[in-house]
């Protein structure tokens, strides 16, 4: 059994809303006690509908927001950013890729600066070394060195997402949180970016936490699947277990709601239509 990179023990996140002059304070339980373990080099997919707490969980894993209670272990080390400062060593272990590639790049930073920033802040590399590394990374994600001096607005959505992936990989993290990384892209570009992610996972032995609501994408990339519903984990297991034999009623509904495009189901649908007519 290989090493555990990421472990969550009963992670809880509550939001306090209201509490102003005219309304009483309310507590929203966004994540209600989530536990999981993730091995190195594997992909955990977190699936669920909008507002089920999957992005909140992603932000906790990336050390952006603190958890209200519960334990988060990265490489076996417990971390709680509400209590202690995040060291640059910790920063280097976890990176995130966002859903919207149009908002995730600073419009006033050239691509070279976007890629160099993580190195500038966390390492002692010289400007020349940073540039060299950034150039190499651009080639790795399928762009070219000629893109180094361009601004984000000169790129398409798929290219921007490649840049975002390159930025996340600059510090060679062991864990990458992908918050719906392909749902803002069109289908052909989705496939390209997914293939890129799969290639990079093999090359750098990365561990992915893949947040998505698209089950066909999840089936393609995931090793393990966690289904969330209103902040709770309703199903957790390997991809084949979950997809072939869903246990919870919500998971079954979720699978039933996925459009089927294989030949048999299309034939059945046409036959049903004819019968009705």
């Amino acid at each position: 059994m290989s090493e555990i990179v990421l472990e969550g023990r009963n992670i809880v996140r509550d939001y306090h809303v209201g509490g102003g002059l005219f309304s009483a304070a309310k507590t929203v339980h966004a994540v209600k006690g989530v536990s999981f373990k993730l091995e190195k080099g594997k992909t955990l997919a977190i699936v669920g509908e909008s507002g089920c707490g999957k992005s909140t969980l992603g932000r906790i894993l990336t050390l952006i927001d603190p958890q209200t209670s519960g334990e988060l272990l990265i490489d076996g080390k417990a971390i709680n950013i509400a209590r202690d400062r995040v060291t640059s060593e910790m920063r280097r272990k976890v990176q995130i890729i966002f859903q919207n590639p149009y908002g995730s790049l600073n419009p006033r930073q050239k691509i070279g600066e976007v890629l160099g920033e993580p190195l500038l802040l966390n390492t002692n590399k010289t400007a020349a070394e940073r540039r060299e590394l950034a150039m190499q990374m651009l080639v790795k994600v399928g762009l070219g060195p000629e893109h180094y001096n361009r601004y984000p607005h000169m790129f398409s959505g798929g290219q921007r997402q490649r840049i975002a992936i390159a930025r996340a990989l600059m510090l060679s993290p062991s864990l990458l949180v992908l918050d719906e990384p392909v749902s803002a892209l069109d289908l052909s570009v989705q496939a390209q970016v997914l293939n890129l992610l799969a290639d990079l996972q093999d090359e750098f032995n990365l561990t992915y936490v893949f947040i998505s609501h698209d089950l066909s994408v999840v089936r393609y990339i995931a090793d393990e699947v966690m289904v969330m519903y209103y902040g709770e984990v309703v199903e957790y297991g390997t991809r084949d277990e979950v997809f072939s034999n869903p246990q919870h009623a919500y998971t079954k509904t979720l699978f039933a709601a996925t459009p089927k495009s294989d030949v048999d189901s299309i034939r059945a649908r046409i036959a049903a239509k004819k019968a009705a007519a």
């Binding site: 640059s88 919207n100 995730s104 600073n106 920033e117 993580p118 975002a164």
Partner: peptide, 26 residues
């Protein structure tokens, strides 16, 4: 609240850098 600011934060930017280098030029 834009994603690029959060991305900078995840990359380890300090409050001062976020305020004057990341956000202000925009």
């Amino acid at each position: 609240t834009r994603d690029y600011v959060i991305a900078s934060k995840v990359a380890g930017a300090s409050h001062l850098r976020l305020m004057f280098k990341t956000i202000l030029p925009n």
